[in-house]
Every structure is written in C-alpha cells, then in structure tokens.
C-alpha cells in the first residue's frame, strides 16, 4: 500500500495536471496522509458514504439474496411473528413457472415489444438528434418538446392514450374505415404493439438527449472529409454519424431492453391487466398477480430470477450484434 500513500492513486488523477510526487509535495498533507494510511488519507470518506451503503444493503443487497432464497423454498405469507416451516424445494418453483403457458406468453410479449420498440427507438432518436444537432433556431423549444413525455407520469399519459385509442376515439375517427376491429387495446394482435408504440413515444426524448451528447464527441473533421470527397448529407449520416455514436447505440439498446423487461403500468392500465386474454401480459405484471394477488411469493420470485437471466442473455446477444467499443 505504500505506493498508494504517496502517489494518491485515483484513475481520475490522470485528467488533472500531474504534480511532482516526491519533491514538490507540501509537507503538511504528506504528514496527514501517512497518519491515516491504513484507512486511506481521508478516512472520513467512510463516514460520509456509510448511510448510502447501509441503504444499498437494505434495499438492494438483502432483497436480491432474499429473492433467490425464496425461489428455492416453499415460501408463503404468514402472520407477522409466527414461526412457520419453509422447506427447501429445489427447482420445484422453477418447474411450476416453466410449465405455465401464461409465463411463456409473457416472455413472448417482451420479445414482441423489443422487436418493435428497440429498432424504432434507435432509428427515430438518431434521426431526430442529428437534425436537432444541426439547427440553430428554436433548439431549446424542440429539446423541451421532445422531453416532456419523459418527465410526465406514465399514469397521466396512459390516460390520454386510452382516450386517443378508444374504440370511438380520435385515432379511429381519423382513420375512418381503416380503424382496426377490434380496436387497439382490445385486439390481441395490436395490444402489445400499442404498448410498444406508447413506450417508444414516452421515452424517446431521453434517448434523443443521449444521442445529442454522443454527437458532440464526433469530430468535425470527419464531416468535412466526407464533404471534401463529394459525399452528401446521407453519406455523412451513414458513414460518420451512425458509426460515431455506436457506443451510445449500445447503451440505448440495453436501456430499452431493461425497460421492456420491466413493463408494468402499461399492461396494467392501458390494456386493462394484460388483456385481451393475456396477449399483453408482462413478466412483472405476472409477478404481481402470482406473488401478491394470489399469494405465491415463491413462484413470483422464480419468475423474477428467470427474468434477470432472460435480460442478461438478450443483452449479451445485442452486444454481439451492435458491437462494443472494440469493433
């Protein structure tokens, strides 16, 4: 640890102007550093972060362990304080979950959601962010307009979509004879796509801002070299912008996947509890129904564990497809 004491090891240190370590360091802090060397030069930091770490322990670490434990035991709700036996049951809960067609349907629904939401989100937010990056006037207005759905409560905007997409709502009145029967949220083919469109609309502003930040890192010379070569705006877009923001794309795809795996409010309210007939049930809605409504928290925990694995697998596949920083 001695190297750490004198060198003040932090990865961020590289960004700061480097100071001569041994010769010019003032004597006072040097002494202070040596005093607290076992716990670091400012052990007070541990006190500062302690409340946050306790919070993480109660609200994240313990519940995760508890969830996994629950999924391998016969867990049920009991009166507070009652001592009950909750035997280890191995993979029984998982077997029950995997033989339940409703669970398969909910994961299929997430798949449908991702197939619509992810490409739509990536394409629309890159296009709008690129356009926004090029304008000078009314930039703030557009930025704010795109972001407003993101800061508004899902419950409030779901209410408007229910109004817009009702059987005799505005959307169907505009479409006239093209309106689908049965209507959007009560049509088993359209319920999940409607949710996917809704979530895309609501979250797009956030992703546009992410891309806007990424675009600031694309060097101007790249655009210029394309125009020197005689390439137009389209060439620029595909050969400079799209590859330039690839790390952001990976992040957007990952965040959209996590969002998709965690749908609850939309199937609960927009399609009236995952209807019609489970065609828009999400795994989290099932966790709620099985765990809390029907009182089987062990089954619900098992669905949760499977959902984590599902997300990790999808994320790994996407990483391969989109390519990380290395490609």
């Amino acid at each position: 640890m001695t190297a750490g004491v004198t060198g003040a090891p932090d990865r961020e240190g590289a960004a700061q102007p480097s100071r001569p370590v041994a010769s010019a360091a003032p004597p006072a802090p040097e002494k202070q550093r040596r005093r607290g060397s076992i716990l670091g030069s400012q052990p007070l930091g541990m006190v500062f972060i302690a409340p946050y770490l306790v919070f993480l322990g109660i609200v994240f670490a313990y519940p995760i362990v508890f969830a996994v434990w629950m999924s391998f035991h016969d867990y049920f709700f009991a009166a507070p304080g009652a001592v009950v036996d909750r035997p280890f049951v191995g993979f029984d809960n998982f077997a029950k979950v995997l033989s339940d067609p409703a669970v398969w349907r909910s994961f299929l629904n997430v798949g449908i959601f991702l197939l619509i939401n992810v490409p739509l989100t990536v394409v629309l937010s890159i296009v709008l962010a690129t356009a926004l990056n090029r304008v000078v006037h009314a930039r703030t207005f557009f930025r704010v307009a795109y972001y407003v759905p993101y800061v508004t409560a899902s419950v409030a905007v779901v209410a408007v979509w229910l109004f817009l997409f009702a059987e005799n709502g505005l959307v169907n009145n505009v479409l006239g004879p093209l309106a689908p029967t049965p209507s959007w949220v009560i049509n088993s083919w359209l319920a999940m796509p409607t949710i996917a469109f809704f979530v895309t609309w609501k979250g797009l502003g956030f992703y546009i801002l992410l891309y806007l930040a990424a675009l600031q890192n694309v060097p101007n010379e790249l655009y210029e070299s394309v125009s020197v070569d005689g390439g137009g705006r389209m060439r620029q877009f595909f050969s400079v912008v799209v590859p330039g923001v690839r790390p952001a794309t990976l992040l957007v795809v990952l965040l959209a996947t996590i969002t998709g795996a965690n749908l609850f409010t939309e199937p609960y309210l927009l399609t009236g509890g995952g209807g019609p007939n489970g065609a828009s049930t999400s795994p989290v809605l099932l966790i709620y129904q099985r765990g809390i409504e029907q009182g089987n928290p062990d089954i619900a925990a098992a669905i949760g564990v499977i959902l984590i694995i599902f997300v990790l697998v999808i994320a790994a596949i996407q990483r391969k497809l989109v390519g990380g920083e290395e490609s």
């Binding site: 313990y62 519940p63 969830a67 609850f264 966790i287 949760g304 984590i308």
Partner: peptide, 20 residues
C-alpha cells in the same frame, strides 16, 4: 445498482417492508 431494475426486488421488498 444502476443495472438492477427495481421491479425484480419488488416481491422481497414487499415482504420485508409491508409484512416484516
């Protein structure tokens, strides 16, 4: 913590906070 979605914690948190 950023990558752990809240929804996965909801059953254990519900048991802990509402019941225990």
């Amino acid at each position: 913590v950023q990558v752990i979605p809240f929804q996965l914690l909801m059953i254990p948190l519900y048991v802990m906070i509402a019941r225990d």
